[in-house]
Design a protein around this nucleic acid. Structure first.
Length: 524
RNA sequence: GGGGCCGUAGUCUAGCUUGGUAUGAUACCUGGUUUGGGACCAGGAGGUCUGGCGUUCAAAUCGCUGCGGCCCCA
């Protein structure tokens, strides 16, 4: 199957178009059978590949006919669920746990408008509910674009004393943002179906800084589990979350487009929101003070990143931790031998199931080659084949998805072998992605070189920079789509005991002496 | 934000210029034969031609507009 990524060059009138390029083969095929269900080439046409894989691998159906909204399908939903499980496990198990909560989707206008900075940052993106049935509402209701304004008035009611602090909360819910016309499945959507937002409340600046460190470490863990490489960067002050003191972001550079995708953000909110929403507590010495806050969020872009980072021309490669199926068993059936093979497969299936593997036996009456393509497209890490020859030799054939080798294993050793293989795949996916990702970062003192590097879509660059917005603006003007990501983590006091300082470098634009490189590149 | 192109079965597509029975493939269903990398044969089912309005004896086809998609530029 294939979804609407067709690119029709011809108009009705001018019809006679150039011959359509056949899709690039993803596999060797006998010459007489026709090619179908192929994916666009991931290197040549990443964005088409991405749309196709979402549909073909049954992750998302984007034919809902409402811009920026789609349907999570069965297989995709399971991946999403595993992704959420990773986040929940980490947040629930910090020394002082985060409590999961759920706030209303609707926010009354007056409450929403209270925090001026946030409103300004989101005002052109808010969906408004103006009617209840046929009755116009006296106070219109915002569909949350983010939940600070829903949560903080409640927090003000809950927090009385320093004994109530720190309070750590999170919710996983959908958000609505009226994005412009350039929407993209999972990456830029109008309904963010999956937004994990943590909000924490503290009695001091120091506690707040500690929380930032905890958040960074949680996020590291999340993306490491997905095998997704990332850069940690403090956003420039002009690109900080509205109302926050500073914002630290996790970005992933897509290996094909070499554009950075923001995967998650961590904000130090200081006391600004506490003052707006009057979140006060009584200190140990009997005074009143406003709480210090942080918030940090991750969306379904996490799923997008693991699809994009590991995928190839055969389809997905799922890290075992998020794979809905870790091992698929394909029986190799020959005439008059079916019963025997199916019996052995069934026994092996039950054995793996009992051992706790996420396993699936593919009994369908289609050719085995077809099954291979089917499961490879869906990124199942290991395929086990069992045929008459294997039964004779008391073995199984194990094929890994990531590097495609076939190995024959004595059936008695198979459990041990398979669980080790899953671990290997998990690690090797991460390692190979990280290796390719690291190669996309280029440090130079020469602005021309940096711009050339980015212009040729080779990745992102680090250049010496003074931090001034005007200076940044003149550099951004040099190349379309060029953006300042911000300050690399190695320079951030909050994340380093000893902060690194560069010597004898000068801002790429104004030539002032500086001590930091900044990251610049193209972004999604 | 500005501009361009497009929408026909689950999917892809022919037909549109010059208005008159909607083409083919694939996927799907049934039966048969097969199966160590996308099998084959036979039969079957599947369409408000993106929604609305208009022109016309007659609209997939011409015009306007909504919705949706893709591309280029800011």
């Amino acid at each position: 199957m294939s979804i609407n990524t067709k690119k029709k060059q011809s108009s009705k009138k001018t019809a006679k178009k150039p011959a359509k390029q056949p899709p690039k083969k993803v596999a060797k095929k006998s010459s007489k059978s026709q090619i179908q269900n192929t994916l666009p080439d991931i290197e040549e046409n990443f964005s088409e590949w991405f749309n196709e894989i979402l549909f073909q691998a049954e992750i998302l159906d984007y034919r809902y006919n409402l811009k920026g909204c789609g349907v999570w399908l069965g297989y995709g939903f399971k991946i999403r669920r595993a992704f959420l499980q990773i986040m929940r496990d980490l947040l629930d198990n910090t020394p002082i746990p985060h409590d999961e909560m759920l706030f209303p989707l609707l926010i009354p206008e007056d409450q929403f408008m209270k925090e001026k900075e946030t409103v300004k940052g989101f005002e052109d993106q808010v969906y408004w509910v103006t009617h209840g049935g046929l009755t116009p509402l006296e106070v219109k209701l915002a569909l949350r674009p983010t939940s600070e304004t829903a949560m903080y008035p409640m927090a003000a009611k809950w927090i009385r004393s320093h004994q109530d602090l720190p309070l750590k909360t999170y919710q996983i819910a959908n958000m609505f943002r009226f994005e412009g016309k350039n929407t993209r499945p999972l990456i830029r959507v109008r309904e963010i179906t999956t937004f994990k937002e943590a909000h924490t409340y503290h009695e001091s600046k120091e506690d707040c800084a500690n929380q930032i460190r905890e958040a960074v470490s949680i996020y590291r863990n999340i993306f490491d589990s997905l095998g997704v490489p990332y850069l940690i960067t403090q956003r420039p002050k002009w690109d900080t979350f509205p109302g926050a003191d500073y914002t630290i972001a996790f970005d992933c550079i897509f290996l094909q487009t070499r554009k950075a995708l923001q995967l998650g953000t961590i904000h130090n909110l200081g006391q600004r929101f506490a003052k707006t929403y009057d979140i006060k507590f009584e200190t140990a010495d009997g005074n009143q003070d406003y709480v210090y806050q942080t918030c940090y969020g991750i969306s379904e872009r996490g799923v997008a990143s693991l699809i994009a980072i590991h995928g190839d021309n055969y389809g997905l490669k799922l890290p075992p931790v998020v794979a809905p199926i870790e091992i698929v068993i394909v029986p190799i059936l020959f005439k008059n031998k079916e019963e025997k093979v199916l019996k052995v497969c069934n026994e092996f299936y039950k054995k793996l199931k009992k051992e706790g593997f996420k396993v699936r036996l593919d009994n369908r009456k289609i050719s085995s080659g077809r099954k291979y393509f089917h499961w490879e497209l869906r990124g199942v890490p290991i395929r086990v084949e069992i045929g008459p020859k294997d039964i004779e030799k008391n073995q199984i054939a194990a094929v890994r998805r990531d590097v495609k080798g076939k190995n024959f294993i004595p059936i008695d050793e198979s459990i041990k072998y398979l669980s080790k293989l899953l671990k290997d795949i998990q690690e090797s996916l991460h390692k190979s992605a990280k290796k390719r990702h690291d190669e996309l970062i280029f440090r130079t003192n020469d602005l021309e070189e940096a711009i050339d590097f980015i212009d040729k879509n080779k990745g992102i660059a680090e250049i010496p920079f003074c931090g001034e917005e005007e200076c940044a603006a003149s550099i951004e003007k040099r190349l379309e789509g060029l953006k300042f990501l911000g300050i690399p983590d190695r320079y951030l006091p909050v994340l380093n005991k000893k902060v690194k300082k560069e010597k004898e470098i000068y801002c790429s634009h104004c030539m002032k002496p500086v001590t930091q490189y900044w990251r610049i590149g193209k972004t999604y």
